[in-house]
């Protein structure tokens, strides 16, 4: 690999890391509350409210069923509104976050729903308020599951970020497309794929290790 190409690799990896890192943080910050709200407002939940649960669930489903490449394009006006530009790293971060938040929210919802109802009952019996049930029972008990869900979300975002090249955001996927696909340089494409496999493996492995540490069952 030439020094020039190696530089391109480092830059692409950095771009991917920034894209996924920032979008991941946003997805976490938005997705976890959405997951909590979905669980709490579900029928039979601790704060049943159809009028919140249905529209929110519907929105989450709508975003999740839209292919990312279409979301990327459809989000252009919104992206311009939020970051003032429609190309570059930040232009990719907006659609990536918007796609990842509902994805993570659904996974977190499943993890939260798996908390044994007996624990909620015990908390109610000891005089816990609903907010306390969320804070002291649901979140800590679901934490290993939530960390596992977030790992899956990050991996899926690394995948989606490859398409971000379409809005000029760069990254590893973009590198593979430009060199591998457009210039028929199979070697670069293969190298990118190997790097991606390594990155995804590392992320998954770290996530699993963290889950093991947190899970006291």
């Amino acid at each position: 690999m030439s020094g020039n190409l190696l530089d391109l690799f480092w830059i692409a990896m950095w771009e991917t890391a920034v894209m996924v890192g920032i979008s991941g943080a946003i997805a976490l910050a938005a997705g976890l509350p959405i997951g909590l709200i979905l669980v709490a407002t579900a029928p039979g939940g601790i704060f049943p409210a159809k009028w919140i649960n249905w529209p929110l669930g519907g929105l989450v489903n709508a975003i999740r069923s839209t292919p990312f490449i279409i979301l990327l394009v459809a989000m252009i006006p919104l992206t311009r509104l939020i970051v003032g530009t429609t190309i570059g790293l930040w232009a990719a971060i907006v659609p990536l976050s918007i796609a990842a938040a509902p994805f993570f929210a659904r996974l977190a919802e499943v993890a939260l729903r798996e908390v044994h109802p007996g624990l909620i009952e015990a908390a109610r019996a000891m005089g816990a308020t609903r907010a306390q049930i969320l804070r002291h029972v649901l979140l800590p008990e679901a934490l290993p599951g939530i960390v596992g869900s977030f790992t899956i979300t990050i991996v899926s975002m690394i995948n989606s970020s490859a398409m971000a090249g379409a809005v000029g955001a760069g990254g590893l996927g973009d590198l593979a497309m430009r060199f591998g696909y457009q210039r028929f340089d199979d070697a670069v494409m293969a190298q990118v794929v190997v790097v991606l496999i390594a990155v995804v493996t590392l992320v998954q492995w770290s996530g699993d290790a963290l889950v093991r540490r947190l899970d006291r069952r």
Binding site: H116, A122, R124, M126, G127, E141, L143, P144, R216
Partner: peptide, 17 residues
């Protein structure tokens, strides 16, 4: 009132975390 009433369960219902 609930704070003045203790309750125990068949499944124990302890927080695993």
């Amino acid at each position: 009132l609930r704070r003045r009433i203790g309750m125990i369960f068949q499944g124990f219902n302890l927080l695993a975390s």
